[in-house]
Every structure is written in structure tokens, then in C-alpha cells.
Amino acid sequence: MENKVLIVEDEESIRGFLKINFRKNDFIVIEAGSGEEGVDKARQERPSVVLLDVMLPGMDGFQVCEVLRKEFPDMGIIMLTARGQDIDRIKGLEFGADDYVLKPFNTTELILRAKSLLRRLGGNKANDRAETVNSGAFRIDVYSQRVFKDGTEIMLTPKEYLLLKLFLENQNKAFTRDELLDKIWGYDFIGDTKIVDVNIRRLRSKIEDKNSAAMYIETVWGTGYRWRKEQ
């Protein structure tokens, strides 16, 4: 997978600083100074990862995230949010962001998060070409990273896909939120575990039958979550 990153940030000084540092780490960098330009550049360039500021002129970061997630389910999106704005972080995740980083941020940490997301987006497809994961109504084609329920494809974000794959490969195993952070986000996460709960809620909304209790992903009170193995 090509290391191409789109930086959507209206402050030119921040954008320029990020461009220099990402280029030093062998990324191809595309820039956008507004939400509308960010959407256009994403459509033209198809970056692997988007760094998306919340506060943008015109379309804000949430609107851009919503558009990109609908059009590019496999695109990695990292939101850049103001420190202390907890509602912004949760809102960004609800719109489909894979991760968030607080401003002012550590550039090295941001680059590591982007690389971690790229690894999880790419995987080792050469070794996974024929692999599938099956459980009841669900089938995962690991090579193409496509998910099907009763033969109908379900569109998942990269993090939702990884969560579902982990659950299906470890049915009945209870995972703590910290374990899920480590296995899915892949680094010492700086922040709270709400990112896990939000992604679980989004995943449930896509795979659970409507108007029913959770049939597949169970909440283990005081611990975290587990996949209920079908009998």
C-alpha cells in the first residue's frame, strides 16, 4: 500500500510543518486548506490516510469525515481535535473516524499513528489471499477485507472490520477495553477508552438485527466485550 497522506488543515503553518515531517518519513503528501478542497483532493488522489482538522472553513471536519467515510470505506481517517473538547472526539468517531489526536499534538506520535493505521489497512494480503473467516451468518474475505452477513455485504470502516475479525477469531473470549486498544489501535493509546465503546456501538448498528437486543457482541460488565458463539 502506498504511503499517501492527505492533510486537511486551514492553518498553513501547521500544514507546512506536518508536510515536512511526513515527507521525512517517506510519505507522499497532499494538502488541502478547506473542507471542500479536502473532499476534492481525496477523490482525485485516493490517499491511504487523511489527517482531518475539525475546525475548517466551509465544510467542517465532521462533514468531510461523513462524506469520505461513505465514499471510501477503506480510507483511514484521523481527526485532529482541540484538547478538552471531549464531545468533538466522540462526534468524530460517530461520523466514522478511525482515530483522533489532540491539539497541540506530538508530531512523532501522529506519524506513528498514521503508520499503525496503514499497517492495519494493508495487512499481509499476500499470505491471506485464500483465507476466509466464517461464523454463522457472517463471512469475512480476509484478502479483500470484505464482510458479508447472509450473503449481503456490510460496509465497515477499517477499525470496525478489525474488531469484527478479532471477535470472530476469538469467539466467547472476553476482551477488556485496554486489550482491544492494544490489538486494534496497536500502540500505547493516549486518551480514554471511549474510542472502543464508540466503535463497538457503530459496529453493532451495522451487524445486529434492528429492534433487537445485542445478539452477537455482548457487553461483559466491568470488563469489556465478547462475541457470543452460536450454538
Results as ranks from 00 to 15, higher is better:
P47H: 03
S48T: 02
R43M: 08
S212H: 11
N25H: 09
L156D: 10
K70G: 02
A32I: 12
G122W: 01
V50G: 00
G33R: 10
T132I: 10
L203S: 15
E131R: 09
I200H: 06
I87E: 15
R146N: 13
R89Y: 00
G123E: 02
T81A: 08
K103Y: 01
F167W: 07
I78D: 04
K41C: 02
L80Y: 00
E45S: 14
Q63E: 12
A130C: 12
R146H: 08
N21C: 14
I111T: 06
R228M: 13
V49N: 01
T108V: 08
P73Q: 10
D86P: 02
Q63H: 12
M1C: 14
L164Y: 02
I195P: 05
E36G: 06
W221S: 10
L110S: 00
L166T: 15
D192I: 11
R69H: 06
F17L: 13
I90K: 08
E11M: 09
L117C: 01
V8Y: 01
D88L: 03
E208N: 08
G33T: 10
F27G: 08
S34H: 13
S48C: 04
D182V: 09
E12Q: 11
L52E: 00
P104I: 08
I200S: 05
K24F: 03
E12K: 12
N106V: 04
L52K: 02
D60S: 10
S135D: 05
P73H: 05
D192M: 08
I200K: 01
F189K: 14
M155G: 08
S205D: 15
P57G: 09
W227F: 15
R204A: 05
D128P: 00
I195W: 00
V39M: 01
I77W: 03
V39I: 12
K149A: 14
I87A: 15
T193C: 11
T193I: 03
E230C: 06
S13R: 12
A174H: 08
L112N: 13
T157Y: 02
Y225P: 05
S48Q: 04
E9N: 04
E94A: 10
R201N: 07
S144C: 11
F72L: 06
E36Q: 05
D182Y: 07
I7L: 08
C65S: 07
R139I: 10
M155L: 15
V142R: 01
E218P: 03
E179A: 07
D188L: 12
L6Q: 03
R15V: 14
P104M: 06
T152Y: 07
D86S: 12
I140H: 00
R89G: 04
F138C: 15
G224N: 05
Q85M: 03
G122H: 02
R83M: 11
F17W: 11
K41P: 00
V198M: 07
S212K: 07
I140R: 02
D53M: 09
E169I: 05
L68D: 06
